[in-house]
Computed example of a mutant assay.
Amino acid sequence: MIVQAYKKQVTVTTLCNWVGLSKSVYYYVPSAQKRGRKPSEFTICDQELVSNNVVLEDIKEIISGPFNCYGYENVTVELKRKHYQINKKKVYRLMNENNLLLGKVIRTSGRREFVQHRKIDALRTMEYLCLDIKYIWIYPEKRHYYLLSIMDVYSRKILNWIFQRSIRKMDVINLFRLIDQEYGIKNVIIRNDNGSQFIANDVKNYLKSAQAKQEFTHIATPEENSYIEAFHSILQRELIDRFEFLSGYDAKVMLQQYFEWYNFRRNHRKLGFITPQQKWESASLKTTGESRKTIKST
């Protein structure tokens, strides 16, 4: 205040000397930005620069196990094994910014209905649906994509699917909306694991409003969702392990072709060596025949 009051009469240097204030402090202008150098937006992996979003997806994969309690130091070690040149400070920052550190958990309100029986005895189509997410590595892009598939258990038919860089709760809701419009999901039992996209309140509320029953597998029990797990194993063996995808788009095109082949042309041993579509259609014919018998009897 003294410097401001007398700076028109005496030089700023002299006034700063009088009050024992350095000129750098006097001329300092605070900034709204964080101090220091701006964090880097890329990381080196296999001598190539990849975005931090790619690093983040790999971090999520590393800590995705049900019993995984890795902190940022263990995650750093795993990333280095994947040929990343990264230090633990950067890993900590990325995990902290995205709520991935230990103790920062996804919370959901409301009760979850867990499965009562491991095996599903489906007697008709659209009685049970099961779904799960599979990671698919696209090497040229140095990142994972996510595949969400929804299967009708009775026929083993894949009713719908999405393949994207990330899958959020609205993606799950929109996929169920499409299935509801085409087939109807009222009174359908939907089985899934405890992924963040599935336990989200918005997803639970949507399925409840559609009068579908959602049930969750127990933690670390993939065998309770064995039908979709088995399909993803088939997909891995018949497509992913045999072909090299040039890009996410290339993978999506090939997945589209595979799903068409799987539903309409691939004989399924558990179905008696017929295709899922044939099983689906035979169920429809059976239902139509029973309806006609009921009409005649009345």
Score class of each variant (00 low, 15 high):
D58I: 00
N96M: 08
L239N: 02
M95Y: 02
R237C: 05
T13P: 09
L207D: 02
L101Q: 05
N174Q: 08
Q164T: 10
V153F: 01
I106L: 12
R37S: 15
R111A: 14
F273E: 10
E127T: 09
L123E: 14
K119G: 11
Y249Q: 12
S51Y: 06
N53Y: 11
I219A: 06
D193F: 02
T298A: 15
G110I: 04
P276L: 07
W280G: 04
R177G: 14
Q236L: 03
R156I: 01
V19F: 02
E224T: 01
I158F: 07
R266L: 04
I2V: 11
Y262W: 02
N52T: 08
E224L: 00
V12D: 00
Y70P: 01
C130I: 04
R165I: 12
G20P: 01
T125V: 15
E127W: 12
I162W: 03
K252G: 09
N267M: 10
Y145P: 00
K208A: 14
H268W: 02
S40C: 11
T275P: 01
N194K: 00
S22K: 07
A200V: 03
S166V: 12
V10H: 14
D250W: 03
Q211N: 12
Q164Y: 07
N53D: 15
Y70M: 05
V25D: 07
A5D: 15
A200G: 03
A251V: 05
N99E: 09
H83D: 09
R191L: 06
Y206W: 01
F259L: 13
Y27A: 12
F273N: 13
E281C: 14
F114K: 06
T43K: 00
L123G: 11
N160H: 04
E61P: 03
I63N: 00
E260T: 11
M126L: 11
E290F: 06
L271D: 00
I173L: 05
C69I: 05
L148M: 11
V253G: 09
Q47A: 07
K34I: 15
S31T: 11
T11K: 11
Y135F: 07
I185E: 01
D132Q: 05
G248R: 02
I240M: 10
I133V: 15
I295L: 11
A32H: 13
E97L: 06
E281A: 12
N194P: 05
S31G: 09
D58N: 14
R242P: 15
K34H: 10
I173T: 02
K80N: 04
A210M: 13
W18K: 01
L175W: 03
K213S: 09
S233E: 11
L246V: 12
I63P: 00
S209E: 12
G184H: 04
F231E: 00
L255E: 02
V12T: 06
E281M: 13
S282F: 06
I2K: 09
